[in-house]
């Protein structure tokens, strides 16, 4: 089956020469969630904006349901937005403060010509019910709702026209823990019901592990590693992934931490080195790391990492001392 979204060699430069996205490729199939993890400056949010064409890419190709949407015109793009949706991080800022919740939920239906006023009203009630939003909140304004409820409104807007792909840009990062779980559960249910594909962008490894089928780890706008979620967390191949996972603090005091430290400086995205971007911080750096871009080697089936050490199997950091 052909993927819902195919991203090929995506490149984006911001004014001022910032290399935000550097040759990124991935696919997402129907019913699948791809987790996109990375720290600040990894380009993960930029990729979300490029994929939904809220930004125009500098280079590369974006295929959505087989159609090349990289250079789609404004009118065609508007039509496409019914099937290609995005949910943003900040639920308080993502909804027009002067519109009621009901109005906000009706907008995507109106824009894409869904039925008459009566059928839209019925559809809004169904959507509100689906995202577990009390019907009374439809008459309210965004500032009267909690962050979790607002994020449910954004999700309702996103699913209103039964999209094929939803980009979720840190959808739970600004929510409290108990609220977060409810949103993640809702997304999980929606995917099971409709088979929508999801691109889940987050810096939170635990959340990504929970919701993703596959995970891509970004470092300075390049995919360092890509693998099925369980394989990535069980057997991280790229030294950066290993460092990232080792820095994570699981909410369980009994889990012992084994920290791998980064040694050097992070290169500037304005002036990236020719070789592996992580070479400057990598404890396993060797001369051929800095000569050219590392090959995207297969580690096991469906699991690839961009490191020169994969082929000879010397890519694993020695476990650091155990920390109390």
């Amino acid at each position: 089956m052909s993927p819902v979204l195919s991203v090929r060699n995506l490149i984006h430069r911001f004014p001022g020469g910032v290399h935000a996205v550097n040759d990124v490729s991935f696919d997402i199939a129907a019913g699948e969630t791809l987790g996109l993890v990375g720290e600040s400056g990894s380009g993960k949010s930029t990729i979300g904006l490029l994929v939904t064409r809220l930004l125009a890419p500098t280079g590369g190709q974006i295929l959505f349901e087989g159609e090349d949407i990289t250079h789609l015109g404004a009118a065609a793009l508007r039509k496409l937005r019914a099937r290609l949706q995005i949910v943003f991080q900040d639920p308080w800022g993502a909804l027009n403060p002067r519109m009621t919740i009901g109005h906000l939920m009706e907008e995507p239906l109106t824009l894409h010509g869904q039925g008459d006023a009566a059928s839209r009203a019925a559809e809004i009630r169904r959507l509100a019910d689906r995202v577990r939003l009390p019907a009374a909140s439809l008459a309210r304004y965004p500032h009267e709702l909690s962050g979790g409820q607002l994020q449910r409104v954004s999700i309702a807007r996103a699913i209103a026209n039964r999209p094929k792909l939803i980009v979720l840009d840190e959808p739970t990062s600004s929510l409290d823990l108990s609220v977060r779980a409810g949103i993640l559960q809702l997304l999980d249910e929606l995917q099971r019901e409709s088979g929508v594909a999801m691109l889940f962008i987050s810096h939170d490894l635990e959340t990504v592990r929970l919701v993703s089928h596959r995970v891509a780890v970004l470092y300075l706008g390049r995919v360092a590693e890509q693998a099925p979620a369980e394989q990535l967390f069980a057997n991280p191949a790229h030294p950066y992934t290993q460092v990232l996972l080792s820095a994570h603090l699981p909410p369980d005091p009994l889990v012992k931490l084994r920290r791998h430290e980064v040694v050097g400086e992070i290169p500037s995205p304005v002036n990236l080195p020719p070789g592996c971007f992580f070479a400057g911080g990598c404890p396993l750096v060797r001369p051929d790391c800095t000569t050219g871009p590392p090959p995207f080697e297969e580690v096991e089936a469906g699991h690839r990492a961009a490191c020169v050490r994969i082929t000879d199997g010397t890519n694993h950091l020695t476990p650091a001392e155990e920390r109390p």
């Binding site: 108990s178 779980a181 559960q185 939170d204 635990e206 959340t207 592990r209 909410p251």
Partner: peptide
């Protein structure tokens, strides 16, 4: 129970 790790082990428990 609402940390992702516990959800993965025990499933969704409606909180919030």
């Amino acid at each position: 129970a609402s940390t992702p790790g516990r959800i993965a082990q025990l499933g969704w428990t409606l909180t919030g």
